[in-house]
Design a protein around this nucleic acid. Structure first.
Lengths: 211, 211
DNA sequence: AGAATAGTGTCTCTCAGACATTATTTG
DNA sequence: CAAATAATGTCTGAGAGACACTATTCT
């Protein structure tokens, strides 16, 4: 009869860089991954989505089960199993920060409760691997984006610079995005907008984009 | 206060082919993945290992957390969260079958309880992917093996034939196994024995062996 | 005109995939 | 010496990675 919870590692791309959403614990002394207790008639997936909706108000997102933590010592005083989901939020329509809920740099998080620091670290590792062999990078962007923005996403997550021409070649050859007719104007030459093909996401699953 | 269990998908290579270890349910009508309830002071990992030891008597093995299932309807009448581990057993020192515990063909399993059929299917998919980008294939073999045996393992799991020369080239270039001085004699020309380098397993994690 | 950003092509090198023959042992 | 299995090399095509210049728009 342990307590079963669902916790979320919610990542999004804000300028500047990749961020993780954290809640200030009631003690006010440490931060924690947002999460909630598993309801009696809820599936884990459902609990994760419900929790996401409560947390962000319901922006579009991608969620996947990351890992389940169950060490008896991980939460002091209360036997707690935590099924952790990794969530990627589009950078449009993002929840703003409040006093007790803020976006933090995942590479240098504040003091975190329980084993949440390790969980966060693992989530980032997983995301990097995932980015290398799936097309999941789009989940962090608005529905339409320029190739430069997409490349910036990959660079932010992978933490390294990528070659512009090689990046474009690979991502276009992969066939997961398609050009739209519109352009985004800015300071210099307007950039073509792209969107990703929902129907292509599954198809790419097995292929590795960035070896 | 749901019940939390650990269930195991234990795979091993027996002649002929890949097998999964299943328990006959007390009803005698269906089979189930071996598993046990999570102890009050046990971590999930620990529970999985303990359960493995009880089930197989303790042959060497590889275990990793696969997925956690928590649908409220998955076990009739009792809210059950099941944290499933994938286990690979070396083919030496294998537990023999008994009346209520047997090795089955995972591709054509008998009638399984609850959602265990879906779990098994997912485990096989994961194993195939994993085999493609890690060196996990060795975990299914005795500690020393010939290249032909290793290739056979890959073929059994992937369900397709591989070219002998290409297989050898790749697996040797990957640097995860090393030749020993001994040979295994049999019907024809004796085959060189290899063992895998434990220290290399981590190193290969990120690389993809079989694209 | 100048600043800013978008967009494009080539070469080299590594590696995957296809493919057939020789080498060593046992009976 | 016949049967069985182990071991080995080459060619081709695809794609990764390195690299620098032209194109378009805004001010």
């Amino acid at each position: 009869m342990p307590e079963v919870r669902v916790d979320l590692v919610l990542l999004s791309l804000r300028q500047p860089g990749l961020k993780v959403l954290l809640d200030l614990a009631t003690s006010g002394q440490a931060w924690a991954l947002p999460g909630c207790q598993l309801g009696n008639r809820q599936s884990l997936q459902q609990a994760a989505w419900d929790c996401l909706r409560e947390t962000t108000g319901g922006s579009q997102a991608y969620l996947e089960q990351l890992y389940t933590y169950g060490d008896p010592e991980r939460v002091a005083g209360l036997r707690t199993i935590s099924c952790v989901y990794l969530g990627l939020l589009r950078s449009d329509g993002l929840a703003q920060g409040t006093e007790t809920r803020r976006w933090h740099d995942p590479a240098h998080p504040p003091r975190l409760m329980h084993d949440h620091k390790a969980i966060l670290k693992y989530a980032l590792t997983r995301l990097r691997y995932k980015l290398e062999y799936t097309a999941v990078g789009f989940e962090l962007l608005p529905q339409t984006f320029t190739l430069t923005e997409l490349q910036g996403t990959y660079e932010a997550v992978l933490g390294e610079d990528l070659d512009k021409r090689n990046f474009r070649r690979r991502i276009l050859r992969a066939g997961v995005i398609e050009p739209m007719k519109s352009y985004r104007s800015g300071e210099g030459r307007p950039a073509r907008l792209y969107r990703y093909r929902d129907d292509a996401v599954a198809e790419v699953k097995a292929r590795r984009l960035f070896p």
